[in-house]
Design a protein around this nucleic acid. Sequence first.
RNA 1: GCUGUCGUAGCUCAGUCGGUAGAGCACGUCCUUGGUAAGGACGAGGUCGUGAGUUCGAUUCUCACCGACAGCUCCA
Length: 658
Amino acid sequence: MLKVVLPDGSVKEFEKSVTPMDVAAGIGAGLAKATVAAVVSSDGCNSCNNEGQTVGVDFPLPENGTVTLRLLTKKDAESLDILRHSTAHLMARAVMRLFENVQLAFGPTVDNGFYYDLWMEHRLTEEDFPKIEAEMQNLIKLDEAFERLEIFQNEAVEILDNMGQSLKVEHVKEGLAAEEKVSFYRQGEFLDLCRGPHIPSPKFIGAFKLTSVAGAYWKGDSSKQQLQRLYGTAFFDKKELDEYLNRIEEAKKRDHRALGKKHELFAIDPRVGQGLVLWLPKGAIIRRQLELFIMEELTKRGYTSVNTPVIGSIELYKTSGHYPYYADSQFPPIKMQDGDEFLLRPMNCPHHVMVYSQKPHSYRDLPIRIAEFGCVHRFEQSGELNGMTRVRGFTQDDAHIFCTPEQVEEEFRSCIDMTLTVLKTMGFDDFEVRLSFRDWVSDKYVGKPENWKIAQASLEKVCREMNLPSLEIVEGEAAFYGPKADFVVKDCLGRRWQLGTVQLDYNLPSPERFNLEYVGPDNKPHTPVMIHRAPLGSFERFCGILIEHFAAAFPLWLAPEQVRILTVSEKFDDYAKQVEAKILERGIRVSCDLRGEKIGAKIREGRLDLVPYLAVVGAKESENGSVALRGRKEGELGEVPLDSFIAKLTEEIATRTL
RNA sequence: GCUGUCGUAGCUCAGUCGGUAGAGCACGUCCUUGGUAAGGACGAGGUCGUGAGUUCGAUUCUCACCGACAGCUCCA
């Protein structure tokens, strides 16, 4: 009796020997059609006793025991991953056939494809791709099975050594004891250390393409040697590959760097400096609207605003403990003739701590929430700069909350709530929340372990209670002073960026640092807890992501130009100006297109400029006191009385309609 | 910072196998006064990223620097 655990978790029993295909046929038409192979794990049946072994469609399953079947189907992501990883093996094999002395590192799958890290003397360029792809096609034709081998560590070291794979030798020696087993996969002459699983035969690879080559460090350590990372992608069929490539092309059109230039939102000019953003008039309007929105929330939520300088005495950062941590990424200190040193601030926290310490505080005053749109500078490495999303000077919508330990959870919850409100208002629903905790081995963190434990526990508790989407805990990502909850969104190319952040801090206020105090009900001094938070993160990065999110078609409340009045001919210039003046009275951003162009041309330009509302005026409208309205989303809306148009605008702006 | 690719008009790009460059859009002037995605004519615009080298001659070849892009490393 063979028990087969199916991909959906259900169990079927078979009396006699079956193949994965038989099983698939029994599950249902949908799966059976798409099934191309099955990946099996088992509890020790003799013919397939390896976890993750790949079994071809005709491979007989054992008669006894339990087998877990994973069917490879076109639709599920896991199957695609297996397909891609096998394609990566094929790619590495092709490279080894074409070039001398190739050392294999690792070749995992990534979001939309796979890569293989290789070390070799020849510098790969895109010119090599056709050659490698052709060789891969040849290998597919050979149709050699992927075969799994399990080998003891010492034997594995020997095999790898004989193959001259010294990177892998080092890896196996470091990672495993002599009596432990590792798995290899063989395909023809190609043999590599690999966890698997793989597709049974390369014939399942319907379409693949090498996409790029880049540098990457051995084991992600920039002090170690640099390898060549060859990227590619693969699909079950050509159509899917073409669709994917099309999607990438479309996505590139949303790139905030291209749209920022096209719509004159921002500029970065090397004559000013790398990574230093010039907000152009239209971009500055968007930023101003974001500021007003945040300020509104701050008022509602009991914050007070301050203004503090962008530089400070270096002693301030030494006391805070930031100085050594930011040594590599800050602009060098400014040394004065009398020996004083100042730092262009990389963060606002120490200034806000100083604001708190200007007078004694009672527990009755807490929490104190100090907010500032604080401009900070960090000297990021040139290769890390990226449009508006990674810059060297930026403004955080920052605030620091000083509260009692008892108030931490409520304050933290309120910060998360504000961040959610902000994201929701912008229509971001595809974001992840990352809880960044400390790594208990590392010594880069400050503060007492018990405080860390309390902080991390309360942080997680609140996040669980609030049911945040895609909550993920990442150890080793915490700030040096405390754990944090980060809100992460993807850009048009699928890269993840941290926007909002809420961070718990038991350390800066501590006696070892700034020794902040409040007087408790017991009339004794106590140390407050500090929360750092920024719902947007920074205006620069947020705006960059926002441009891509809306593809520069901003909702009315954010749009740099909200209404454009288009005249049918010069005869209606006076009426157009009257309309403009009336709309302007309400503080709405309106302009007139009085050029001697035909109305068709004006409409076209208004559409291309993504103006939310175009108001056409001619004989009829000037007579009736109306406009012929055209919405960016809705198209023609017909003739609307001016008053009701203005009411509509006012309402839509006030509610920040998306 | 590292590896690779790239840099021609305001923008998007073509081109020159070494003999100082062209298109479309945008811009300017004039004609056209037109009702929902491009009316027409003429014109102005470039030290071909910067600096050296090779050459009779370099935008083109070589090197260095600057900057951008992709990835790595690092971060809001």
